[in-house]
Simulated assay, not measured.
Amino acid sequence: MREAVLESLRSVNDPELHRDLVSLGMIERIDVTPHAPSGHAVSVKVNLTTPACPLKATIERDVRAAVMTVPGVETVNVEFGAQVRMPTTPPLPGVKNVLLVGSGKGGVGKSSVAVNIACALAQSGASVGLMDADVYGPSVAHMLGQGQAKLVGNAERKMVPIEAHGIRFISMANLSPAGQALVWRGPMLHSAIQQFLKDAAWGNLDYLIVDLPPGTGDVQLSLTQSVQVTGAVIVTTPQDVALIDAARAIDMFRKASVPILGIIENMSYFVAPDTGTVYDLFGRGGAAKLGNHPLLGEVPLDPSARQDADNGVPAVIAHPETQAARALIQIAENLAGRVSVQTLSELPMAQLV
């Protein structure tokens, strides 16, 4: 019967990858045991390509329905594990995927989005690192409540990332005195980025998220030339002045052969807390003007999210019930799905089966 169950699962496709679970190597285990009075109980363990899979419920429903078509099956139990895939060549030792979060201009909430995505992925069960590559204006440490912490080295003379809210992070804010301006030219920026990437004890990570500085300058160039990047995410606000610069960021990544995993529209709308009326303060739907790229989600303008960032506890942890936090959690799941699609499209078939 086990063979019949396995054959039935060939009819179940991953909704995002559009291929069946068996050929994708996602079926880890099938157990068949007698079930009174004359049938069998079947237990199937499915290894998802990310613990943040946004379509887990759909896969469970389809697996259950397919196995129940096998004669003699009376009950079906579906378990889930997760194994984040990586490109053929890992970008860094122990790191499966490097994801860049960029924007064409400042003031669009890019760092806040990066911090919340990182924490949401970690809450789903993934191992996540966050690298603050905005050397001139680092804000990640403050948003994670670690502005006073200092980076230290280990016995191998590597920087040890600071841990907060389930993620590991590195920021220039934890290396330089508070309030001190860094007056550095390009070569020094390049050196700092190299140290953050390759002279840090990141350990084993499913995702290393890199919060880029605004624009299309030295840091972006240094990163794309130094490490294999799985893809980039563009954060923008809806108004045209932000979209113009976001389009430039997209063009930069295109020239650097970095795939665009999707667009996030931040401050997309505002919901009045007293009346529930929705206001499009900066317009809405502007991300659709950026070409044929997936929209990962729209994040409303929410004063509590700003307060959470100032208090050092990301919104997805401090107030997960708010509209902004729910949107960010959904964006993290959508991004994880896009990463799975991107990495699996690069792998030869022999590595999937």
Rank of each mutant, 00 (worst) to 15 (best):
R185L: 12
G129P: 04
V140S: 05
W202E: 02
T216G: 14
S222R: 06
T216A: 13
Q148V: 12
Q148P: 04
A149N: 10
I209Y: 07
M172G: 10
M188E: 11
A201L: 09
L197D: 07
G203L: 08
T216W: 09
Y136F: 10
G137A: 09
P213N: 03
G94V: 14
C119K: 04
K158G: 02
G94E: 07
M188N: 08
R157K: 10
I167Q: 06
D206F: 12
H190E: 15
G166V: 05
A155G: 01
L100I: 15
S124R: 06
N97S: 12
I170D: 11
Q225K: 15
A122G: 13
G203Q: 02
G179P: 06
L197Q: 03
L100N: 05
S103Q: 02
T216K: 14
G102I: 03
C119F: 00
S111P: 02
L92V: 02
H190Q: 15
A141H: 11
S222H: 14
V183R: 04
I162H: 13
V219C: 11
H142P: 00
A178I: 09
K198H: 15
L223G: 10
V135F: 10
S171L: 04
L182I: 15
V135G: 03
S222Y: 14
Y207K: 00
A133M: 04
V95Y: 15
V98N: 04
L182Y: 11
C119N: 11
M172K: 07
D218M: 09
K105G: 09
A173D: 11
G125L: 12
P87W: 05
N204Y: 09
P213K: 07
L144M: 13
Q225M: 11
D218C: 11
I117R: 00
Q220D: 08
V152Q: 09
G109C: 02
S111A: 02
A200V: 04
T216Q: 12
G166D: 08
P187C: 00
V152C: 05
T224F: 14
L223N: 08
Y207P: 00
I162Q: 06
G104H: 03
D134C: 05
D132T: 06
D211L: 01
G153P: 00
L208H: 08
M86F: 09
D132I: 00
L212F: 14
A173E: 14
K105W: 05
S171K: 11
A173F: 08
A114Q: 03
N116C: 00
L208D: 08
S191T: 13
G217V: 07
S171F: 06
G147P: 09
Q146D: 13
S112I: 05
M143T: 01
K96F: 10
N97E: 07
A173V: 01
H190K: 13
N204K: 13
R157P: 02
P187H: 08
G203R: 03
P213W: 04
M131K: 10
Q194C: 06
L144G: 10
Q194F: 07
L92D: 05
